[in-house]
Design a protein around this nucleic acid. Structure first.
Lengths: 334, 334
DNA sequence: CTGTTAGCGCCTTCAC
DNA sequence: GTGAAGGCGCTAACAG
């Protein structure tokens, strides 16, 4: 197995200097068309590809974008990642995946990244990155935040969770339900996610606006996941005085509610209506009525934003914070 | 923003040569403990991290593992990827994600990878990589294949789909069902996946072994996905003479069957039983009885295998092909 | 055990 | 428009 061709081999073959070859590789303008063509031919003949490591070392750029995601905790993340992937795939950037399982791991990962010139840019999905670490350690690093309302110093793509909570609740109200329960997250131990709380806020506001009953025993919180939601829903369903509809802070939790309803023999939506939030893939299978959060699109948006930043050198102020459109996906659980 | 410290800065500070610093970085044995410590201290003081690009260029290694996956087509892939991620996360290797959408894109991607020294190793999920491309272009590239029965020249982690098909079918038979239908994939236009066909083969064998009815109109094939499976199942359910149970080649398709059953008012499992294959996450939400294929674990296994290969220089013959254990996950649809 | 030195492959002034 | 030469940060002989 022989040595890969280098820029020098190309230069020799095309009877030019390495500098010229470098120029055509980086399509610098100052090359006569015919020499350029000669070089191109040589490149073709030799099946030459510039060595990325050398380009990185010499140019100071990595052609790499890091994506930080709390991978395993929720299905929505994979969908967003897929959206990012699709966009980066068409670019010259490699996508390297950093998956984290806790805030402390996030910090570790960040300190191994920040100021080390390992990536040209970063996208963080859902986790709230410690902004000071970046501002202090590598203030010029382009970072785009996806799905974190709390971010301050970086451009972001966010869900208006309060509004989303109102939207879901209002939808239930419009459908004629007046006794509405809520199943959401207790404080998240690993990442301090707050979306559930914000959605609950929207829920309350919508009820208040209509002066509807707000029964504490109808609002239960637990660790995120099907299981906890299932248990909490069971508890609610065993109440003597039950709600007619339940708003779950996420689709996953809505599945738990559905499971509980099935178990106690409650028919959905006739006996109890259920609406979720996110519109993950499985929701379609389950015919879950939910709030669509454009997961895949938002991944694409974040990648496009970062790419433009990398290209233009800065981000247009209009794009600093963009709210995702939210929409009701009507299926069969309401 | 000042220059990052280099190996030279460390050398100066520790009063040694760069070679020595390099030695302690790569923990080479030939360094006196006290000098090593001195170097370590200097590294610590300067917060020095070796520049990966330089290491790659100089050492000829990339510290990068490429993962090739048909990302968007099926949920099972994301789960496997997550397993890989977890293992690589603990290693020094970066995981760069290559997602492909067709066989032709796979070839393009491969030719940009093979022989270009861009990755130290490759894991391919579910897609059948054109082995000659690698054998000819970069015979020393470590490649591990995950979930592709057809692979010949590389170590692999595979599902025995025929056996799995038998297992599912046998389970149905044991439960007393004798009239069993099948919903699977027609020929896959993008990737030539064959798992569905193999599972069908197992299905047939199990029926034959028990001399059970094999009704062509009970076996329908379509593009992979909920929708097609749903349509096909509807068709079957409208037959005058219906099966009592249906084996779907994947969980996703089983969801389509469930949806169809609900729609025509068939109760599962009383009127019709349904078993799937894979045990993806959503299956738990849906209480789907299925064949568990250890998706996450298999991702981990493939990563461990590749890591060992990278470390040891070769793979132990015993590990050349490992079949995943398959198990019946009993839930509520049978 | 430690230091010197020559690359790794490419980019980028700076001359011409 | 093109070439020569230095350097990016690190590793790997080769000496000593």
């Amino acid at each position: 197995m022989m040595r890969l061709p280098t820029i020098r081999d190309v230069a020799r073959k095309a009877h030019v200097s390495v500098a010229t070859v470098s120029r055509v590789i980086n399509d610098s303008p100052n090359v006569r068309p015919e020499t350029r063509q000669r070089v191109l031919d040589a490149i073709e003949d030799l099946n030459f590809h510039p060595n990325p490591a050398a380009q990185r070392l010499s140019g100071g750029k990595t052609s790499t974008i890091g994506v930080i995601a709390p991978f395993f905790t929720r299905p929505a993340f994979a969908t967003r990642l897929a959206g990012i992937q699709e966009i980066l795939d068409e670019s010259k950037y490699d996508l390297v995946l950093y998956s984290i399982r806790s805030l402390s791991q996030l910090e570790k990962r960040l300190s191994s990244l920040v100021g080390q010139n390992r990536v040209d840019g970063l996208i963080s999905i859902s986790v709230h990155i410690p902004e000071e670490m970046i501002l202090e350690g590598d203030p010029d690093l382009p970072v785009v935040s996806l799905d974190d309302e709390r971010i301050k110093h970086f451009p972001s793509i966010v869900i208006d969770n309060v509004y989303g909570g109102q939207l879901a609740t209002q939808y239930l109200i419009d459908k004629g339900y007046t006794r509405i329960g809520f199943i959401g997250d207790s404080n998240d131990p690993h990442f301090n996610f707050v979306s559930s709380q914000r959605r609950f806020e929207g829920f309350r506001q919508a009820l208040e606006a209509k002066m509807l009953a707000f029964e504490p025993q109808w609002h239960l919180f637990g660790l995120h996941g099907v299981e906890q939601a299932y248990r909490n829903a069971l508890e609610i369903f065993r109440l003597p005085h039950q709600p007619e509809a339940i708003f779950a802070a996420s689709d996953t939790q809505a599945f738990g509610v559905l499971k509980a309803a099935r178990e106690v023999g409650l028919n959905v939506p006739d006996d109890v209506a259920v609406i979720g939030f996110d519109d993950i893939e499985a929701s379609e299978y389950l015919n879950l009525t939910t709030i669509g959060a454009h997961l895949y699109d938002s991944g694409q948006m974040s990648a496009r934003l970062l790419l433009r930043w990398l290209l233009a050198g800065d981000v247009h102020p209009d794009k600093w914070q963009t709210f995702l459109p939210l929409e009701i996906i009507e299926r069969h659980t309401v």
